[in-house]
């Protein structure tokens, strides 16, 4: 079971690395205003996120089984229960994982800042540009023709 936990952790690290790599592509798509690429990346990252979440669920379940305990079991706590021969491996995996997660989080936060700021610009420009006629465009940016309905209040 400890071996299974090790391979789950290794797989999780692999997926996080992938996520980290795609953040660079996401940044480029934002800068290049390539909405097609941006949406592709977001979809891919979303799939990665789901896979990571599945592995994480699996890891938590394994941990609970291994130490017969409910609630949140931190990886750092789990090391103390591991067989002596595997402790070093778990410490290395745990360190690698935490470092990777922290890197990703840092990058995700700057990216959130970038996206929020750019979004602010876009929204400001749209409000200036459409000048109160926002309803004339749909969410794909296509112009919507008025159907010419006339609404009247009746008694």
């Amino acid at each position: 079971m400890w071996n299974e936990l090790q391979s789950v952790l290794q797989e999780e690290i692999k997926l996080h690395r992938k996520l980290k790599e795609t953040l660079g592509s996401l940044r480029e798509a934002i800068v290049l205003r390539d909405s097609v690429k941006l949406e592709e990346i977001l979809e891919f990252q979303s799939e990665l996120g789901k896979e990571i979440q599945n592995l994480e669920n699996k890891r938590v379940a394994l941990c609970r089984k291994l130490i017969q305990q409910e609630g949140v079991i931190r990886l750092s706590e789990l090391v103390e229960y591991a067989p002596k021969s595997m402790r070093k491996v778990f410490v290395r995996l745990r360190n690698e994982m935490i470092s990777l997660l922290e890197q990703i989080q840092r990058e995700v936060r700057v990216m959130r800042y970038v996206v929020r700021t750019v979004l602010g610009y876009v929204e400001e420009m749209i409000s200036i540009f459409t000048a109160g006629e926002l309803m004339a465009y749909d969410s794909t940016g296509s112009k919507v023709r008025s159907k010419g309905y006339i609404y009247s209040a009746s008694a």
Partner: peptide, 14 residues
């Protein structure tokens, strides 16, 4: 205008 609205949509999702 179309580009801007597309960006807005994508950036909101991002």
């Amino acid at each position: 205008a179309m580009n801007l609205l597309k960006f807005q949509h994508s950036y909101q999702a991002a």
